[in-house]
């Protein structure tokens, strides 16, 4: 499944990213290059700084130090005048979309409205146009709704378009989060633990779906996981964070045999692993994506 990515220019470049909360250094001088079209995973035990790193790319946290650029344009870089620091919505308009670890749907809105919110940055209608319902506004609304329906079909939620988001099942909520992220037409998709809370069957389906999206929608995917096994099958590149520091970066095989990574997971992180096996749906198997793929198509 792992596709060969030609060494093109990286779509995302992070240099020396550091984030400090008071006395705590959550992320420490992390560099990361993401090749266009790849699936890159950032893994690490809980509290390793993965989500903080993610939030810095998405523009929610301002890094204490470092630079981030996307397709050669700076997202964050330099301080003082002349420095850039984009807001989350500006990052999204550049073509980066994200999901959240602890699902953050607009729970009281309908499924299709959630997707329409995702399209916000691609639409233009303003207050005056909305009041007058000008022709261009109406056309835009029509198109948006049609696109939203087709996106929902793509993730397999076409029938639930009018239900309220909070009434969806857990797995469907995760799918809706993905659909909502896709709605902004991203070229880089950030997925924060997309399989958290899923049983092995659902996990395998989601993993396969991520790969499918990448191929069919020409996406680059950045994935956060603390479960190493989920990631190995589909990732072109795996970076490992531990205590905010990047301790390994390379192909899945390289990372798996890296002694520091093993120490992080089995030494200091032993409790972490045992917790994973503790879950009711244990044991977690390494999902063979190829095997499960036919059944996983939504």
């Amino acid at each position: 499944m792992v596709t060969e990515i030609e060494a093109g220019p990286p779509i995302l470049e992070a240099r020396g990213i550091t984030k400090q909360f008071g006395g705590l250094i959550a992320v420490d001088e992390v560099d990361l290059n993401i090749a266009t079209g790849s699936i890159t995973s950032v893994i690490g035990p809980n509290g390793a700084g993965k989500t903080t790193f993610f939030n810095m790319i998405a523009g929610i946290y301002k890094p204490t130090q470092g630079t981030i650029s996307f397709k050669g344009k700076p997202i964050f870089g330099g301080s003082g005048f002349g420095g850039t620091s984009l807001r989350p919505d500006q990052v999204t308009s550049l073509g980066i979309a994200r999901t959240f670890q602890n699902i953050r749907l607009f729970a009281n809105m309908t499924v299709i409205e959630n997707v329409l919110i995702g399209m916000h940055s691609r639409m233009k209608a303003g207050a005056i146009g909305a009041m007058l319902r000008t022709r261009s506004v109406m056309r835009e609304e029509h198109e948006a709704r049609e696109n939203a329906y087709s996106l929902l079909d793509y993730v397999g939620l076409g029938r639930q378009a009018q239900s309220t988001a909070k009434n969806l099942s857990y797995g469907d909520q995760r799918r809706l989060e993905v659909a909502r992220a896709l709605a902004s037409g991203p070229s880089l998709l950030l997925l924060d633990e997309p399989t958290a809370g899923m049983n092995p069957r659902e996990t395998a389906a989601m993993t396969a779906f991520i790969d499918k999206m990448r191929r069919e929608l020409n996406l680059t995917v950045l994935l956060i996981e603390h479960d190493m096994k989920v990631v190995m099958g589909i990732s072109d590149q795996v970076a490992v964070l531990d205590h905010g520091v990047k301790i390994a970066d390379g192909s899945g095989a390289e990372v798996r045999s890296n002694p520091e990574v093993i120490e992080a997971y089995l030494g200091k992180g032993a409790a972490e692993l045992s917790r994973q096996f503790d879950a009711p749906a244990a044991p977690v198997q390494s999902p063979q994506v190829e095997q499960l793929h036919p059944g996983a198509n939504p």
């Binding site: 523009g59 989350p88 500006q90 607009f106 691609r122 909502r180």
Partner: peptide, 13 residues
């Protein structure tokens, strides 16, 4: 409903 999610979806809050 959720300001941070809204901002992340491209809304200039």
């Amino acid at each position: 409903e959720d300001e941070i999610a809204a901002a992340s979806m491209g809304i200039n809050t």
